[in-house]
Write a protein that binds this DNA or RNA. Sequence first.
DNA 1: CTGAAAGCGCTTACAG
DNA 2: CTGAAAGCGCTTACAG
Lengths: 343, 343
Amino acid sequence: MNKAFPTIQDVARAAKVSTATVSRALSAPERVSEDTRRQVIEAIERTGYAVNQTARNLRRKQTGAVVVLVPNLGNPFFSKILAGIEATASKAGLNVLIADTRQPHAGADRLGEYLHNNRADGMIVLDGSLSADFFSRPGRATPPVVFCCEWNDNAGLPSVRCDNSGGAALAVRHLHQLGHRRIGHILGPRDNVLTHERRRGTEAALAKLGLALRPDWVFDGDFSLAAGAQAGRAWLALAERPTAVTSSNDEMACGFIAELHRHGVSVPADVSVVGFDDIDIAEQFIPALTTVHQPRNDIGETAAAALISRIGEGKAGLETPARTRVLDVELVVRASTRAIDQQ
Amino acid sequence: MNKAFPTIQDVARAAKVSTATVSRALSAPERVSEDTRRQVIEAIERTGYAVNQTARNLRRKQTGAVVVLVPNLGNPFFSKILAGIEATASKAGLNVLIADTRQPHAGADRLGEYLHNNRADGMIVLDGSLSADFFSRPGRATPPVVFCCEWNDNAGLPSVRCDNSGGAALAVRHLHQLGHRRIGHILGPRDNVLTHERRRGTEAALAKLGLALRPDWVFDGDFSLAAGAQAGRAWLALAERPTAVTSSNDEMACGFIAELHRHGVSVPADVSVVGFDDIDIAEQFIPALTTVHQPRNDIGETAAAALISRIGEGKAGLETPARTRVLDVELVVRASTRAIDQQ
DNA sequence: CTGAAAGCGCTTACAG
DNA sequence: CTGAAAGCGCTTACAG
């Protein structure tokens, strides 16, 4: 900040009114006479005045900002979620702060400051691995928090996400309809709630069809392209191979397909693959990826709207019953899956 | 914010000292006696006190935040840039605000508030299309601004970016070495500074090799996958086709290759393709994409460091001579390019 | 080393 | 409709 910035005092002087009137002309123009308002506006222009948000926020006891906690900002998956959050928040006049929970400096203490130091009026958390007590501090009220995409059941907080288990089931049923009976699955990171839910959906759908998920057809992963490639190598090393594989996300599906390709194995001719997320590249991948579409922009917007309404109610994080919003997913059939002859 | 939050007054009372002493114990512990410090710490814990940043910022005349202006947050290209910025800013104790310049609500006025309403101590701009007068307001000082990736020469502001024309030249020379003489180019969005620079680098390199960029081998685009696919269709419709194409970014290169694939044309057997950026998927694309690697994380970190040093100097945007930092790129040869017999 | 007091730039009952 | 005054929660010369 520069001291050369004009203040409300300067405007008051220039308009020959009190600072209270200038303030009203700005925040409640209907409570000021036509004439006065004009004078104030004119004085504002003449002085080049702009409200000092810090002072306003201190006085109003708000920050005008929400913070989004992202596990690894470098992961492009989050871009459309962030875009949805930003669109909704900025429409409501809120600023959006971002913080990366995986940064070395981002200890729970540091991140907790956002919640407890009046830096933000609320928080959207994309990281389900934050422990429940991160969100509540002994003897202190806490601003509203909502989970988005990932979540932690123990925290008892509202959550907005897609239908993860349902999506996984969609993928399995699609492969089953194509005649596949030998179906494998690539996992996300261990201890991740999405990994867990998608695996659960996969197993449940398989069970309903009278099939089981063979342990040797479950491939470890971590949502990265490299992990997909590694799963590809694991698949190649198998004596008995599944004819189809569902992946816990698209990136691993792409890595899996690329690795098989490098070894002369073709998708979908030799094995069918279904992803999860429907990231941008899925449609232009070769082969175009069959996947479970997740409405990422919507999810971000819905989470922001949920947070904003909580902020409006003035409810703290734990006072209102937590509500879970599960948005629908849909299967997008493209070129990475193909019918198989009955075995 | 919740009124239940304890203030520095509560701590002072609990520790039986003045608020000045509490403040010092926090901000300048060496100016407080050992004993007093311990008492204050203990009182802070007992009360659950956390500094109110808004009050501190008002008093100190700073905001403790920088804002990043992103043209379309939904574009995953920016994720690693943002990650670099966030890492460096948070290390310096600064919060990171983001705003999308392409949102309908994001008029120049709204965005300008970040600069002129004491919302941020500085700004990083990823959007080169903002006009020069956006950054200076008549009669007002302006906090430091630095461009990142994109820039606007007219604004006279510091800028951090990769070597765009040099990268484009690298791509051309690589293709030339492989024997290609008929080389086309897919453009980014019209009026974009990166489009312009990369095209310029392409033409300059071509000229040096005694070649010209044929107008019918220049394909319109906008950095999107769909634009790449459209360029693919344009290539297919050509009577005389280039044997190699450089693309102004990776996404269009992928779209281009995918479209040709759908029409039975193979890369690199039938045409070689070089991208730009080296996004995550480039390596696992089929064929793996030869491209110009841009150090996105570095670029973000460097831009943040440049901004922070300007903030530290207390210089406003226009007071110090603008400095341009151009980071090196490098060609990553993968599978989308192949030698051709001399023609 | 410590405290009393002023002040950062606003907003908002309160009174008229 | 308007103004005087208090106060949001800090920090920082100033004085001792």
